[in-house]
């Protein structure tokens, strides 16, 4: 749930989603769910020439399992808080076992 929680804070931010098929899509993160499915709006494909079929696509829903990376806006990440959240997550995981 940490990632879900984290990505929720990036809603309405500009992110770049790199898919496992090497397509990189930049757009505004509209929503994300527990499976880290991602909805992007106002998208643009980074290498547009390579993927002309996507040039007219304006928004996408990306299944979470096909995402390789998400490039984040660094300014929108509270690193210290994220560290703590990670510690908490680890603690709860550990306590569940």
């Amino acid at each position: 749930m940490l990632f879900f929680s984290f990505f929720k804070t990036l809603v309405e931010q500009q992110v770049t989603v790199e898919l496992k098929n090497d397509i990189s899509i930049r757009g505004t993160l509209k929503s994300v769910d527990q499976f880290l499915n991602i909805k992007l709006d106002d998208i643009e494909v980074l290498e547009e020439l390579k993927y002309p079929h996507l040039s007219s696509v304006k928004n996408v829903f990306i299944r979470g399992s096909v995402v390789r990376y998400v490039h984040l806006p660094a300014a929108q990440v509270d690193t210290a808080l994220l560290e703590d959240a990670t510690r908490r997550e680890a603690a709860t995981q550990a306590s569940k076992k």
Binding site: L2, S5, F6, K8, D78, L81, A85, R88
Partner: peptide, 12 residues
């Protein structure tokens, strides 16, 4: 605990 980052982040 489940949603720590989001909730605290928003508070902040």
């Amino acid at each position: 605990a489940e949603d720590f980052y989001y909730q605290v982040y928003n508070q902040i």
